[in-house]
């Protein structure tokens, strides 16, 4: 079947990573928009959470889809990681990385993503996975008799938890920093007209995300009441 042949090809697997990554990125955007209600205070956040949980059918479907997306993104990523390691059975004695930015971006004096971010994608990805597990167990499967706003504020106020969150958001920002550019390249969306715009977005979007999401634990750890 053509679709199976497509998905099992090298470009097809990259496409799977790109499309699932893009959808996860969209989820991240909506999730952060929801969480940002915490800046308006615990009551606003609580009513957002209750509003969201009142649509159980929609929420269940969304969760199944999300789980599927994560499974596709993680399993394809790990498979590619394994395949790529096998492609060079004898390692070099000396291996130097020389790439800083692509030639296309270099012409504009900018770069799409830090080489470090590109190099560490599998590792930042696995760190994000372990963060998500902690995140779900802390909040989604947290105490049911306490309002979720209270659980969030109490947990994130503890310095260890708050710092873990800020660290994880930084790792996630780095992952999507390369991810945004990488997925566009994989989907073939590369054109001189958009080089500068895309290169700016790969930096602006993760930093915006980091400020909005990381600001919450930062404020709570610093003792600000939300």
């Amino acid at each position: 079947m053509w679709f199976v042949r497509f998905l099992t090809s090298s470009i097809g697997k990259k496409w799977l990573m790109a499309v699932s990554g893009l959808l996860l990125l969209l989820f991240l955007g909506s999730h952060i928009a929801g969480i940002a209600t915490l800046y308006l205070g615990s009551t606003a956040f609580q009513s957002y959470a209750e509003q969201l949980h009142s649509h159980m059918l929609f929420l269940s479907l969304f969760r199944i889809g999300l789980l599927l997306l994560f499974m596709i993104h993680i399993s394809t990523g790990l498979f590619l990681f394994y395949q790529n390691r096998k492609a060079r059975p004898n390692p070099y004695r000396i291996s130097v990385r020389v790439a800083t930015h692509s030639l296309a971006a270099h012409a504009h004096g900018i770069r799409e993503s830090l080489p470090l971010a590109a190099r560490t994608m599998p590792y930042t990805g696995l760190l994000i996975l372990s963060f998500i597990i902690i995140h779900i167990f802390g909040f989604s499967f947290g105490p049911q008799d306490v309002p979720v706003a209270k659980t969030v504020v109490t947990l994130l106020r503890s310095p260890a938890y708050g710092l873990l969150y800020i660290f994880s958001f930084t790792v996630l920002a780095m992952h999507i920093h390369h991810g945004i550019w990488s997925l566009l390249q994989t989907l073939g969306l590369s054109h001189p007209r958009f080089t500068v715009f895309i290169a700016r977005m790969t930096t602006i979007l993760p930093i915006f995300f980091l400020i909005v999401a990381g600001g919450i634990p930062l404020l709570l750890v610093c003792g600000v009441d939300l």
Partner: peptide, 12 residues
């Protein structure tokens, strides 16, 4: 061959 992960080493 392996799969591309857009690290740009090739063109460099």
């Amino acid at each position: 061959f392996g799969n591309c992960s857009n690290e740009r080493e090739c063109e460099a």
